[in-house]
Computed example of a mutant assay.
Amino acid sequence: MTDQQIELRETVRARYAHAARTVAAGGVAEDCCGTDPIAVDQTFGASLYGATDRDQLPIRAAAASLGCGNPTAVAELREGERVLDLGSGGGIDVLLSARRVGPTGKAYGLDMTEEMLALALENTAKAAARNVEFLEGNIEAIPLPANTIDVVISNCVINLSVDKPAVFAEMARVLIPGGRIGIADVVAEDELTPPQRAERGDHVGCIAGALSFTEYRNHLTAAGFADIEITSTHQVADGMHSAIIKAVKPGAETAAESQDPAAVDSCCAPGCCPPDGEPSPPDAASQH
């Protein structure tokens, strides 16, 4: 990483560490793009979760929410699935996911901030969630094996990454074939240049680092994703929107689909027919 990227990452870490300490001390985290406490009419934070979701969780899980949407509401999680939340913070989306996938599923949370991880573990204990695991690390290098996750979610975190292509590549790596993503993130209108995005908010405030709609789609395509949908949900600044991003990692073809149809149907496909002059072996039915 460049010195500038290292500085940006540490600025983000310090911002979220401060938010976690504030919540742990009984306060409320500042929202992603400002200095006011979270309120029901804001475009970031716990107000974007329904009352039913908020009421299911420890109050500090909601108080630490700094996201721009509710990815668990659109990820269509199913019983028994394995879910990974990138930038899991105080654990609100991990805990909601754990409830949705049930005891036969599992929800992982990945965060680089020790203070947020400590808060998430506290919230997990209060929620008595047993199908949850939190990991310390960076979203550009996910500490999980390949092909082990059914669904990747994230809530207003990818815009903070200093290496977004690496994030998308890592999401594709850990997902099983046919796995999917359900992400809430800030996205810029295509005509806004990076300097214009920076005029609307800083990097740690979830604005300056945002990709445009076209850039987001191109990065996902380059990482191998298909069926990409990017849907704006509400405006967070002039020309900047909270959006829900969905995509699928293509599944592997079945053996039958990958074979030459002529070879499948032909009696004399390789290995099918005996050498010339030898009798055909009896079929299985005639041997009983």
Rank of each mutant, 00 (worst) to 15 (best):
I244Q: 03
A243M: 11
I207G: 13
R217S: 05
T231E: 11
G224W: 01
T233V: 15
A222F: 13
F213A: 10
H234I: 05
F225Q: 04
Y216A: 12
V236S: 09
T233Q: 04
T233C: 02
I207W: 05
I230A: 10
I244W: 04
T221S: 12
G224C: 02
A237C: 07
T221A: 15
S242F: 00
L211P: 07
Q235V: 06
R217D: 07
T233S: 13
S212W: 02
L220M: 02
T233D: 06
M240A: 10
T221Q: 12
R217H: 09
F213L: 15
A222Q: 14
D238Q: 14
F213D: 09
E215F: 10
T214I: 15
Y216N: 10
Q235Y: 08
T231S: 12
G224E: 00
M240I: 05
G209W: 01
G239D: 14
N218L: 05
D238H: 15
R217T: 14
S232G: 07
H241Q: 13
H219D: 05
A237D: 10
E215K: 13
A243C: 14
F225S: 04
H219N: 11
D227W: 01
H219W: 08
L211D: 07
A237M: 11
V236C: 09
A208R: 00
E229S: 09
S212V: 12
R217C: 08
S242H: 00
Q235P: 10
E215D: 06
A208L: 02
S232N: 02
S242C: 01
A222L: 12
F213P: 04
E215A: 08
H241L: 09
